[in-house]
Design a protein around this nucleic acid. Structure first.
Lengths: 155, 155
DNA sequence: ACACATCAACTGCGTGACGCAGTGAAATTA
DNA sequence: TAATTTCACTGCGTCACGCAGTTGATGTGT
């Protein structure tokens, strides 16, 4: 077992040290370009992503997800409301709370902005077998969990 | 061929519509947390990532990679110099140009900030076979190319 | 029932990152 | 050599953000 796979160690290094960072840099950049296109802030699109993924949320919950104070989140929501991407809905259960829910227009704008990238990625995935696709999916889910855990730790 | 794999279509949708976006959101968030920890801006860490990946670059090249004007890049470099992460080196070949190169301290700081996440990811990757690892690596490289291409298109 | 503490979202104010427009220096070209 | 282009770099205004305080609603103890 002194030499399980020399190739394997190299692959691990390349994935963690080069491929993931390289991709992450471009993800940040494409988000920035999209934000500029939509005429909003990077933080705003991040907020829209969170809403599209987890559904309506309170300003407070939104603030923690995008690393903002509640005050700054308030202003961010003002901007998104003004842009027609988001709506303020009173929480029937607790009249202190307000729920922020994305408008159809907001969801469509974000979806359209990333449609090109999604298409390219689908095309990329054509080159893989069903089993490889499954492995990729499992990896992405694992990375999601690990990144989430690391965020919690770093706070 | 009317039913190549029903499972495959579902996997494609989940990867492009859920797994990648979900991970991307967290990548942005972890970058933000790291930036706060290092006492610099999100843009600053993005710049450090670019430098760590592509080596020394001129302020102009750096500006395009982080979507900034050359003026704002100048100030960003000022901040990074003040933080001891970066050095200005005159270009011997063209005396108008200045090369920005990361200091060892800057590289170490970034590396340390992400060490926990890298460790987690390596642990995640233990669960995959050599062949699966190879598929994951090929996918990441393809995603990198596609994202790069989409950025060019959106400009 | 009534005060009192808590928790939610929201506002004034200061700081700072950014874009824009202009400057100066060096290189390229006519 | 003169004109143009291409760099990096600076005043200035705008706007996103954090901080601290406000308002209103919900619980909580006596």
């Amino acid at each position: 077992m002194t030499k399980p796979t020399p190739h394997r160690a190299a692959a691990l290094d390349e994935i963690t040290g080069s491929a993931i960072p390289g991709w992450a840099i471009l993800v940040v950049q494409v988000n920035n370009v999209v934000a500029t296109r939509l005429g909003v802030t990077d933080t705003d699109v991040q907020c829209l992503h969170v809403l599209g993924r987890h559904g309506p949320a309170t300003p407070g919950a939104l603030a923690t997800r995008v690393n903002l104070t509640t005050g700054s989140a308030s202003r961010m929501i003002d901007r998104l409301v003004a842009a027609g991407c988001v709506r303020r809905v009173p929480d029937p259960g607790d009249r202190r709370r307000v729920l922020i829910e994305p408008t159809q227009e907001g969801l469509d704008q974000v979806r359209a902005a990333y449609a090109g990238l999604v298409d390219r990625t689908r095309a990329d995935l054509d080159a893989f077998t069903d089993g490889e696709l499954d492995a990729i999916l499992r990896f992405l889910r694992a990375a999601e969990r690990s990144t989430e855990a690391e965020i919690q730790r770093l706070r």
